[in-house]
Amino acid sequence: MIMCRRATELMSQRLDRPLAWPERLSLRFHLAMCGACSQCNRQFDLLHEAGKRFEPAAQVQEQERE
């Protein structure tokens, strides 16, 4: 069982490297039970997305790639 502090490490690293499956599993398990960490996870995602919005045309580029 991981605690919130460790969970935030994993949700951060998830944005920088692929997690190993035991890490993914324990993160998913923790998020399912912890409302505060689920919010934190959404906010990390939002910050990740916010960085991309800085460039005016970045979104267009992303869409083109898809």
Binding site: I2, M3, C4, R5, A36, C37, Q39
Partner: peptide, 12 residues
């Protein structure tokens, strides 16, 4: 390792 009450993230 749990959030402190006052540091707990809330919805944006």
């Amino acid at each position: 390792g749990r959030w402190l009450k006052e540091a707990r993230p809330v919805s944006w």
